[in-house]
Write a protein that binds this DNA or RNA. Structure first.
Lengths: 134, 134
DNA sequence: ATAGTACTTCGAGTTAACTCTAAGTCAAGG
DNA sequence: CCTTGACTTAGAGTTAACTCGAAGTACTAT
């Protein structure tokens, strides 16, 4: 089973434009072509696209993903570099989650204040005192 | 106690340029000025900057934050709009956290594969079979 | 064979969010 | 008085990541 660029785009919620752009940037160095020059995606390629999307959606830049792809193309001797890169990135993702949870607390507190303004003075000392009182 | 733009920038890990940019975009409509025209930040203003940073860091666009700021300036009659906006945004943040956790699983799996390649075939069916074998 | 559809490349344009430069003002210290 | 340093504005430039348009090729159905 193989897939066209539009099928893959649909599957991952991207546009064909974006997939070609990723290809052009070197993020997909091993996508095959059919006899008329069209990109042909295999199941294995789909796994790779999933990995690219995962890295992108967790904030890795295209430049870094290209570095990762380049290392993958170079074979086994780059395993250590790849492992280090993923371990570093993992830390960043863990930090992102922690930061988001912290921010969520402030958002929750703010919503609570709107539901019960009394809480504002008690809990925080009057955020927006100035604006709310105008 | 009041603060200069550079003190605030330091406190929040932003540049003074960025704070002025936010001000220009209407994200800080109530920052006072000293007699020579310099921005003067109060403790209350710091709380507001914290809120802006929270919204920005959780993916809200400057345009949306401006909308929120505008509503804050209009006073009590916009409480409902603000509450709705924050509740909607809260949902998005919760989703971001869930998505990041999901992505983290793939990253963890991939790291595990690098540590013990045997797992690849068992768990996933050979991601990167093509690239690893070249 | 011809119309339609899906793909191709190349390169220009867009958007968001900064990021910086230039030219100028202002207050304090020597 | 003069320099130094922190601030001011307006506006231009940068960067990342798309996003689109034009022009062309190739298979598919009528």
């Amino acid at each position: 089973m193989t897939y066209t660029i539009n099928e893959v785009a649909d599957k991952f919620g991207l546009s064909a434009h974006t997939l070609r752009f990723y290809d052009k940037e070197g993020l997909m160095p091993f996508i095959g072509r059919g006899k008329s020059g069209n990109r042909v995606f295999t199941e294995t390629d789909l796994n790779w696209v999933a990995m690219v999307c995962c890295l992108k959606d967790t904030g890795m830049s295209i430049k870094e993903i290209k570095q990762y792809a380049d290392w993958c193309m170079q074979g086994m001797q780059t395993i250590d570099e790849r492992k280090t890169m993923l371990a570093d990135h993992r830390k960043q993702v863990v930090k992102q989650i922690a930061d988001l949870k912290k921010h969520l607390n402030l958002i929750d507190w703010k919503i609570a204040v709107y539901d019960d303004p009394e809480k504002a003075e008690e809990m925080y000392g009057g955020l927006e005192k100035k604006t709310e009182s105008t």
